[in-house]
Amino acid sequence: MNEIQVTSGLLLAAALFMLGLIGVLIRRNIIFMLVCVEIMLNSAGLAFIVAGSKWTQPDGQVMFIFILTMAAAEVSVGLALILQIHHQLKTLDGDAANSMRG
């Protein structure tokens, strides 16, 4: 059998998603967190493409494109913010930004 099952595609997406998730959780560097979130978004895009491919519809790819757009916009805002924070706090430690609590 030379066909690829939907489940394999989704499982790949899930695995990548979880890797991104674990990355967000274990890295303290904000840039890393941002990158890992990108990985998660990307794997969600993969899941859409798998689903779209299953139904042979273009909708999955359309959604992927929109996800791409959003990821680009988000990264740009995020990086701008990171620049700001580096100015203010002189560090990229996510845990250091905890002046608000309780």
Partner: peptide, 25 residues
């Protein structure tokens, strides 16, 4: 606050997207 909101919102958006992909599939 901005960076917290950004990371968390994007993070939860990823969940939302993955969920939608599963539903769509």
């Amino acid at each position: 606050a901005g960076i917290k909101y950004l990371i968390l919102a994007a993070f939860s958006s990823a969940f939302l997207l993955f969920g939608m992909a599963l539903v769509y599939s």
